[in-house]
Design a protein around this nucleic acid. Structure first.
Lengths: 350, 350
DNA sequence: GTTTACCTTGGATACGTTTTCATGCATCTC
DNA sequence: GAGATGCATGAAAACGTATCCAAGGTAAAC
């Protein structure tokens, strides 16, 4: 069974293919031909093939979406936001999961390049250097939730970290400036609020339990704690659940004197609760916990978890908007507000 | 900046484009030409354009993935499984979220058709009738997690429901047989085990809290309860969290005599816990709860939730395998085992 | 030594669309 | 009325690839 092509429509309507194409893409045509073409197209149930169009225009429509892990419900929400925007624009979304691994990310970018998908929204893992080839190839990239870390060859990491903090000077690679648009949660404000809340409860030895891509949050954490930053209380896990658990458990064991933890993601929060339970640390009596990201189960946990809520779906939606409108407007970065939701996982310092 | 094409490679290597194409697609070629072509291709950093290939072959590579809701971590796991398989095959995945809405599903199928994506793995919402056009258009469809309900015009719904129970006679539409492959969890066994466990604890009035696409689970539930099925204890929610909460709350209020609930999904379980708490019903003292799907937070909940675990990731992976191998082998349906994980949310009947 | 068979190779074609360009016709301007 | 302006229209040329086919060459078979 052959697919009906634009040629079939043209023949059936007694016009040339060019006319059909024009009518269907909103070009100019006389009212009567337009009507006839539309009628015939509808009757033949004609759907233009994206293949032909893509080849002609040398670009695939739609956008790529690169996420670290769909198991993490925050990224699930982000994805739903992107999909919602894409759907209303009628554009397809090709999805890739990087597992927070720069190599896989690079591979996926390569795949998108091969597919001529020239619009990407990504939660980046790799260096600014990693992303440079994509940009040079003409991709429109919008980062979400994070910025790519400065390239390792950068002269002053802390410098660019601090600059990145405001979210408007996104990414500087060694010398070369990327300056790509991004949609981020306001980590500076979020972390500051959380830390101030904990300090108000009397906590002094506050730990940060972080994951990949938490450079901005950690910088904000340091800033909020100035000048009493205890580097040993800043701990990192890799992307996986196991690694998160190991990091949390290790933290509690190596520093039994800590009284509060800020977990930089919901998997990390989960790990902290689990590790604390395993070590017979009571929340919030022995240790207070604030978790990044408000997930539905935070309320079901016992005690219910105090969280920093981020608008995951909005982040996705806005990012998709940016990447779609990039042709017309030059996109500017967006900073979305966070909110501290106080539940029951923080108490006064013992 | 122009993209390097196969023509450039051919010229640089001093051969015809056909030869380059053959070398790169694994066709036959003499060792020396093969080597030269590969060297030149590597040096020019040539990547074949998927656009040209797709148009020529009149099909887009990769596969479509249609899920109800990425916010639900079960579907997140399923997606990760699909992505893992797709990645190892080097194939792109285009994602769509149906929101458990048949209309959106149909729209997304249309989009895939337009993109000439001829392989789809779907958690279906729409009728068998909905899927018929896709099949007729030559799509290779593999269902995951669910089967499409029988078309409304079917003469005997219960008949096809029962047949569908074994998971090997997937889908029957009115008269026309779909008979599409699917990867499913063994709901019959899962539900039976759960119900027997609850009955063993003395429960008699057991409710089922269901969602869209739970036909098979409900059928299994009825079967396990035979002959004492109380239809009022079978309640359905739509896909959303709000709807799940409303259904759970309504169930508890309308039937205060029930002593156990089987929640057919993790959002439904969440809703049940929340609703019970709101109504001052203690779990498991006042009401026992078994939740479908083992999510990480089930352990964090208080009490920890007894669950029926499904291998979400495996389901996705196997489905992707099936849809990719469909060309060579005619795919057969797969039934994966479930496991009852006993934690603390079930107690003896009061 | 001749025929046969096989392997390698490159030219040409087709995939379905958009877009450029030239043509024809009608309307407007002076 | 002659020229200019505008619009609708269709033929044709890309876009980058895979594949068909014919041609050439080499090795095997007799």
């Amino acid at each position: 069974m052959k697919r009906t092509t634009i040629k079939d429509v043209a023949e059936a309507a007694g016009v040339g293919v060019a006319t059909v194409s024009r009518v269907l893409s909103g070009g100019s045509a006389s009212p009567q031909t337009r009507e006839r073409v539309l009628a015939v197209a509808a009757q033949l149930d004609y759907r233009p093939s994206a293949l032909g169009r893509n080849l002609r225009q040398r670009r695939t429509g739609g956008m790529g979406l690169l996420l670290p892990d769909l198991t993490d419900s925050f990224y699930g929400r982000l994805a739903e936001g992107v999909l919602a925007c894409a759907r209303s624009a009628g554009e397809p979304v090709v999805l890739g999961s990087t597992g927070d691994d720069p190599e896989q990310e690079a591979e996926l970018v390569g795949m998108l390049l091969e597919q001529s998908v020239d619009r990407v929204i990504a939660v980046p893992v790799g260096d600014a250097d990693t992303w440079d080839p994509a940009i040079r190839a003409g991709m429109t990239v919008v980062f979400a939730d994070r910025l790519p870390p400065a390239a390792p060859s950068a002269t002053s990491t802390s410098q660019s970290d601090l600059e990145a903090l405001d979210g408007l000077r996104p990414a500087r690679a060694a010398g070369r400036r990327l300056d790509l648009p991004a949609v981020l949660a306001d980590d500076r404000s979020g972390v500051r609020t959380a830390v101030q809340y904990l300090r108000g409860l009397g906590h002094r030895r506050i730990a940060y339990l972080g994951g990949p891509g938490h450079a901005r949050r950690v910088a904000a954490f340091r800033e909020a704690l100035e000048p009493h930053v205890d580097e040993d209380l800043i701990v990192f896990a890799r992307g996986s659940r196991d690694s998160a658990y190991a990091a949390a458990s290790g933290l509690f064991q190596s520093r039994p004197d800590l009284t509060a933890v800020l977990a930089g993601g919901n998997m990390l929060g989960e790990a902290a609760v689990l590790a604390a339970r395993e070590l017979d640390l009571r929340i919030p009596r022995d240790v207070s916990l604030i978790m990044y990201d408000d997930v539905p189960w935070a309320e079901l946990c016992s005690p219910p978890l105090t969280v920093i809520a981020q608008p995951g779906q909005d982040i996705g939606y806005r990012a998709a908007e940016l990447v779609l409108r990039a042709e017309s407007r030059r996109p500017r970065s967006v900073l979305l507000p966070t909110e501290l939701i106080v539940r029951g996982s923080c108490g006064p310092r013992r």
